[in-house]
Write a protein that binds this DNA or RNA. Sequence first.
RNA 1: GGGCCGUUAGCUCAGUCGGUAGAGCAUUGCACUUUUAAUGCAGUGGUCAUUGGUUCGAAUCCAAUACGGCCCA
Length: 520
Amino acid sequence: MSEQLDENKLIALRREKLAELRQGGIPFPNDFRRDALAGELHRRYGDETAEALEELAVSVKLAGRLMGKRIMGKASFAHIQDMSEPRMQIFLQKDALVDGVYEDFKGWDLGDIIAVEGVMFRTKTGELSVKAREIRLLTKSLRPLPEKFHGLTDAETCYRQRYVDLIMNEDSRRVFQLRSAIVRYIREFLSERGFIEAETPMMQVIPGGARAKPFVTHHNALGLDLYLRIAPELYLKRLVVGGFEKVFEINRSFRNEGLSTRHNPEFTMIEFYQAYADYRDLMDLTETLLRGIALSLLGTTVVTHQGKDYDLGQPFRRMTVLESILQYNPDIRAEDLAERESAAKIAARLGIPVAIGDGLGKIQTEIFEKTVEDRLDEPTFITAYPAEVSPLARRNDDNPFVTDRFEFFVGGRELANGFSELNDPEDQAERFRKQVEDKAAGDEEAMHFDADYIRALEYGLPPTAGEGIGIDRLVMFFTDSPSIRDVILFPHMRPEAVQTIRVDDSRRPEAGPAIQIESS
RNA sequence: GGGCCGUUAGCUCAGUCGGUAGAGCAUUGCACUUUUAAUGCAGUGGUCAUUGGUUCGAAUCCAAUACGGCCCA
């Protein structure tokens, strides 16, 4: 017996065709080897004339998904799509194929995976094409593809069934190809500069390195609750203690928060640490990196995002938290930000709730977040964050109220956060204690006391600077994507209301009854 | 968590004042040996997200729920 997914007549018809294939031999063959990609052929032969191509008589083997089919009696055109761009047109003539093959082809469906062997030529209308000598069906597709002209536009289906989105939407394929290129660029950028790539625990006994609510999981054999990491920071700095003086990790981290166009519960960061450097060195490095990505990806330093141009070729603006508040709030006076009481009044006027335990630094930061952050359009480094909100950052030598820290903003969004690392173990222990107090007072995002991390610092962390860059947001910026879901292949979604998984007992006798998952 | 909007054929979308549903593409059949969203002719295809209510009658009005989108916190 079997429980059906959403069957319809189109699928039933294709199942009948598959059943015939099963009768006729091996239905899912894997003995075809291609020797070319459509895109490569376009680049290599795209400029050759029809006559030149005829003379060259280049024979090629292509495979891919059947995306277009135009039957005109005893001749047909088809388009196949492989991992390259653009598609290649195939020309078939009944007389040029083995008897019966042309009739088989007429029964194939859009979406089927096919193999073609033939000769490059140019059609009357000038399109580079392959004249088929042999053509085979490799994989029967049972489900109809979306409409060929409008494609798939329903956002929900694009996210839930990314495979269909990728088949249909070149723009979507492009985003993820660029994402791959960005990650590769960053990895090479750091590797060339002598950084070592590391992999640190994703399951942690004490989640650290950021202020965030973690996900909890459980290790059965150890009888131990573990947290999915919210950041790799504390482990990477242990590695610097260990002598890996330049180290990075491209990491998936997890934060138990809501979903939005800017937040996914799991997200990708690059974190890197460099000994004998400070936060200013990392600001310079960040400028170089972002400029390099733009030039490498786009061939220009000007990035167009959501209708605006951002020139990463210019030096990025730099200002402190306090300077930025004053610049964007002409009605606020510097002296009013210097005292807790007057700053709290400003916060209250702005509708920011102030808790009794909040110090001046926290209040200043909230005023900054409320009135400045999303207006930081041009590439900007904001520096001098209060120590109160920067429990892992080194204090500034001249003004210990603030830290040697920066965040980078562009298009109103925070893309990076970096600082000179706090390497004084006693100061760090004190700041952990303050976090634990905050946690006891009900701050769910406050940090834990990580005694092993303090022990590591006590062995001596060299003067170091570290930085994290949000890869998803970076990719959003460079690919002009309005939502984080557009740059994550399988973004988090609520489960579909009722999902039935087909289990065919006749072929898997050991299997139990049909599995049915229903969400309540 | 709050507000607004959406959910109709495989896909993209119409659906007027409440009278049991329509197009294009896909698909099926026929014709067609250089097409480009091929073309021509003829068909098939629907639990109008779900549940309940109002009504003689609901895709349409009301409510709740589910899922999604945008904005806000």
